[in-house]
Amino acid sequence: MPQVKRYCDNVKILDLQRTAAKLREEVIEMLLQAQSGHSAGSLGTADIFAALYFEIMNIDPKNPDDPNRDRFILSNGHICPIWYATLSHRGYFPKTELKKLRKIDSRLQGHPHIQMLPGIENTSGPLGIGLSFAIGISSAALLDQASYRVYCMTSDGELNEGQIWEAAMYAPKQRLNNLTWIIDRNNIQIDGTTEQILPLEPLRDKLESFNWYVIEIDGHNIEEIVNACNMAKAVTQRPTVIIAHTIPGKGVNFMQYKFSWHGLAPNKEQAKAALKQLRSMESRIESEYY
């Protein structure tokens, strides 16, 4: 196993946890405004988004087209509310625009489009296609002898798609060690749990047998997320996949673990209850408005 410096800046970790909590609040507010959208995955990946955009990736929101920037590709486009929330909080575009999610004439499409918003690096929606796209960017980086890294998030349900396994075979062949694939392993998909619908386990064994360097983490533990991404930088000759175990709907007790919240947005009462819980995570008092 490659040795890397452990990440143990407690102040920074606390800060990232707060950022993730803020992003979760933002997601609830966006979904309420839009009255549609995907709650579970958006809440479940907030810690990963906070870690990537506020700590791990080499990016500059003021120069979103910087050729040397690290790239993040979101294959499971339906969780874009958390991507949009993260990008706006990181300074890519005004936060006021978040309330336009899924509305007419908006840059915040229901599923992301590459040319619509600064910071959005790919188009996605149909599942299973983003990893191939990320491989294309990784390949271009090698051709250009560029040093940026490519991060690609997929869901676990989308591993049902055959194209994922085409891509999973190809990246190790090309020794794309600049590529880090993050699987949001939350065990749910639209119609039920992943193991009921189309079993993925033993997932780690599958990925290892495809010759990926596999790391398994708690996807809500900031330190583990940062460590895993740093460890991936030290892997040579092959790509890394991080299986990030997450809780769908994390932070809102009536959403957590429930596959029914995959594609559901909260109504007014539910949003109020969700925000109360999320805000209490920072020991705040119940808010009058949301």
Binding site: P67, L131, S132, G136, L143, Q163, E166, A167
Partner: peptide, 26 residues
């Protein structure tokens, strides 16, 4: 040879990789 990509019998993956490679001006 450096600008040639053999993806195997995988047309969907090929389309995705092509789109990704195109982003930076290739």
């Amino acid at each position: 040879p450096d600008r040639f990509f053999q993806v195997g019998v995988a047309e969907q993956n090929m389309a995705g990789i092509a789109a990704g490679i195109a982003v930076n001006g290739r």
